[in-house]
């Protein structure tokens, strides 16, 4: 599935909720169900510090795709992080860099991004794109060497 398709899938799921309580309960459940990031990644090096909630993000590159794992100490943030990973993980770097991630707005969670300093989410998206950019660079670097 492409990034857009995955976004649409999430938008459809969220249309089932008729009030904010259901929506947040779902996000909280999602946050609880996300497997913890391996301890070796839950260190300063992978920490994206937000003012309030911390997010740890790890990325690896395999066969032309980027795989993310992440976690947060706040459950709501962790739930939203899980959604972002569902959309972006396993996608090619170029698509990650170009992703607009409009679904966050469409499912009514934009407030968690606009409070720039309040949680690490906006920084996390930026960091995900930076990883993708770095992987893409090494990739094109390899090609030029081969050429």
């Amino acid at each position: 599935m492409t990034i857009k398709e995955r976004e649409q899938e999430i938008i459809n799921e969220f249309e089932l909720f008729d009030d904010w309580m259901d929506k947040y309960n779902y996000i909280i459940e999602l946050g609880k169900s996300v497997p913890s990031i391996p301890a070796e990644y839950k260190v300063e090096k992978y920490l994206i510090s937000g003012c309030q909630a911390s997010v740890w993000l790890h990325a690896r590159y395999e066969n032309g795709k980027v795989y993310f794992s992440a976690e947060s100490d706040a459950l709501i943030t962790k739930g939203i992080v899980a959604l972002l990973i569902r959309v972006l993980s396993g996608q090619p770097p170029r698509d990650i860099i170009d992703a607009e991630l409009d679904f966050i707005n469409r499912i009514g969670l934009k407030e968690h991004l606009s409070q720039t300093r309040a949680n690490g989410l906006l920084n996390m998206i930026r960091q995900m794109k930076l990883y993708a950019l770095a992987f893409q660079r090494t990739e094109t670097g390899k090609h030029t060497q081969h050429d």
């Binding site: 706040a74 459950l75 968690h112 949680n119």
Partner: peptide, 13 residues
Amino acid sequence: DIHPYDTGTILDK
């Protein structure tokens, strides 16, 4: 057992 950010988000709602 609850992060302040989570508490604040629900109170805001």
